[in-house]
């Protein structure tokens, strides 16, 4: 389709080859192969415990993988601390529980990393921060503390905090799972807007509406393996694997 051709000649931002990971004896991820093109929007879904969060957490080294290669922007992700630091500047993550810094104001949450990691002057970092706070429609809360905001507002601040690093890739780890239902939409709207602007996104989520609307590719994982991947129309209407069918019937059935 047109979406696929849009990405055909793009460069790969993330390449994962034959990646394996164990927790002790437990084989969490098995032979993961993944190629993420620049500007590609990928939604990863699967039953809980299938390793989808672990997979994206390996991509910025919050988790170590034991076998296989991960390359981000052509840089090998391994034990080399310098490489990890370089990659983390480009790959930002939005967490299920927001993980804002509670002792800092919203504005300071946004400017901290740009000032200390990217060495931006304070004035510039604050200007950028206000720009992104306006984009997530929360600029008036800049001087409040995270504890004074609602869950949806906190998650939008967390997204803005990532954007301030001007990342090449954004990882979303179940960004709406900890939110009250009425707040999910405000966060999804921000994510949809980001997707439409061409941000490279990997998103672990159960929001299938979001997947249908913006994903270039949906990946289904089960028991630590990528079971099936396809563009959303095919994925939802014509799933191939039995496990995928079962999963889709469970989450779309009601």
């Amino acid at each position: 389709m047109t979406e696929q051709s849009r990405l055909a000649d793009r460069e790969s931002v993330i390449q994962v080859k034959k990646m394996n990971k164990w927790y002790g004896d437990f084989h969490v991820l098995t032979d993961i192969d993944l190629d993420v093109k620049q500007g590609e929007r990928i939604v990863i879904c699967g039953p809980s415990g299938s390793g989808k969060s672990t997979l994206i957490r390996c991509l910025n080294r919050l988790e170590e993988h034991q076998e296989g290669d991960i390359t981000v922007n052509g840089i090998e992700l391994g034990d080399n601390v310098k490489n990890i630091e370089v990659i983390r500047k480009d790959v930002c993550m939005v967490f299920q529980h927001f993980n804002l810094f509670p002792h800092l104001t919203v504005l300071d949450n946004l400017t901290l990393a740009p000032m200390f990691v990217l060495k931006q002057p304070k004035r510039e970092a604050e200007a950028t921060a206000m720009k992104f706070l306006e984009r997530v429609k929360i600029a008036e809360q800049a001087n409040k503390y995270p504890g004074q905001l609602s869950g949806g507002q906190q998650q939008r601040v967390a997204i803005a905090r990532s954007l301030c690093m001007n990342p090449k890739v954004m990882l979303f780890d179940e960004p709406t799972s900890a939110l009250d239902p009425e707040m999910i939409k405000e966060v999804l709207d921000v994510m949809i807007e980001l997707a439409q602007e061409g941000m490279t996104m990997l998103c672990v989520t159960h929001e299938m509406g979001f997947a249908k609307q913006v994903a270039d590719r949906v990946i289904f994982m089960d028991a630590g393996q990528i079971v099936e991947e396809n563009e959303p129309h095919e994925f939802f209407n014509n799933p191939q694997n039995d496990r995928t069918k079962l999963f889709l019937s469970q989450i779309l059935g009601h």
């Binding site: 910025n60 080294r61 919050l62 630091e85 983390r88 500047k89 790959v91 930002c92 993550m93 967490f95 529980h97 993980n99 804002l100 810094f101 901290l112 990393a113 200390f116 990691v117 905090r161 990532s162 690093m165």
Partner: peptide, 21 residues
Amino acid sequence: PKGQYEAADSLGLNYWQKTFK
């Protein structure tokens, strides 16, 4: 909470920045 360490890591802060900030 572990999430604070992870958030600091994922933003690229190094050990001392993470510890002191």
